[in-house]
Design a protein around this nucleic acid. Structure first.
Length: 284
DNA sequence: AGTGACGCCTGGGAGC
DNA sequence: TGCTCCCAGGCGTCAC
């Protein structure tokens, strides 16, 4: 599932593959893929044609490509989205929704998305960040991420720790997989009340989040199936480095206890029963 | 204002 | 074999 590392790998591919190129033609074959573009698919196409894509940027799980018009093309992969840079005569995949051809006649950009939770839109402004993304917090790999502000904000929350890690307005880029991996490394259960964590504990947690995200970027991200791939269609290798996520009943790599699976927020959470004990009422 | 529940969407697999 | 149900889960929206 695309979280920060997977999206970052895609961003790097876009920077290599489409930045600096001028759009010649755009085809939208499924309007749902541009539903966030409120002015409609026709307007989406008009705002892209003839424009040059300047760079490839990312905040959390959002991507955007500033245009020479002052607009920006925003992309979100949702659960199953792919941004591919491939030859125009490559076979058309089943869930291909948007094609962007370039004036240089080289490889085209494709948005493919099985579940269409993701999508594309063109918005006004993209420097330093499109206004519609202003609510998204900086992510832990952002040089301007404010560690102490995060520590204070998390401790002001009155919620569970995993819920806070998944809140993109508090810290962005972390989804279910990397939340579980961060918690495993920090030896904390996701139900721990945020307001009871000490400052040093939150700093350690943040350091683990940074580590696991950076290591996953190095490995090209996590690919459980063919749904997540780079712009070149390559799968990531980080799945083999997962310690908790998806490892129900397998031994904890640290202590050997079988990893447990719990239902949480209508999804699965994986943790070690020994390394990450459930919080007891009134203690932490 | 902060918190949490809900619905969107499709394919694959389990179960009958 | 074929049908139904469940699961994966990011995030915008809405209610409290």
């Amino acid at each position: 599932m695309p979280e920060l590392p997977e999206v970052e790998v895609v961003r790097q591919g876009l920077a290599r593959g489409v930045a600096g190129r001028t759009v010649a033609d755009v085809r939208v074959t499924r309007d749902r893929a541009v539903r966030r573009h409120l002015a409609g698919a026709e307007d989406f196409v008009a705002r892209l044609c003839g424009r040059t894509l300047l760079t490839a940027e990312r905040r959390g799980k959002y991507l955007w490509l500033p245009l020479d018009s002052g607009d920006a093309l925003i992309g979100h992969l949702g659960m199953s989205g792919q941004l591919l840079v491939v030859p125009g005569d490559a076979p058309l995949p089943r869930h291909l929704h948007v094609r962007v051809g370039f004036a240089d006649g080289g490889r085209e950009l494709r948005f493919v998305d099985q579940r269409t939770f993701g999508g594309l839109q063109v918005v006004v402004g993209g420097d330093p960040v499109p206004p519609v993304l202003a609510h998204v917090a900086r992510d832990p790999l952002d040089p301007l991420f404010d560690d102490e502000a995060f520590v204070a904000a998390l401790r002001r929350r009155r919620t569970g720790l995993k819920r806070a890690l998944l809140d993109q307005t508090l810290i962005s880029g972390i989804g279910n997989i990397y939340a579980d991996e961060t918690l495993w490394r920090a030896r904390l259960h996701g139900a721990r009340p945020t307001e009871l964590l000490t400052r040093p504990a939150v700093r350690r947690l943040l350091a683990h989040a940074r580590d696991v995200l950076a290591e996953a970027v190095e490995q090209g991200g996590t690919s459980f199936d063919a749904l997540y791939v780079s712009t070149e269609g390559v799968s990531g290798l980080f799945e083999r480095s997962l310690n908790a996520y998806g490892r129900e009943d397998q031994p904890c790599p640290r202590c050997g206890m079988p990893v447990r699976r719990e239902s949480f927020m209508n999804r699965s959470s994986f943790s070690c029963p020994r390394c990450q004990p459930r919080p007891r009422p009134g203690r932490w």
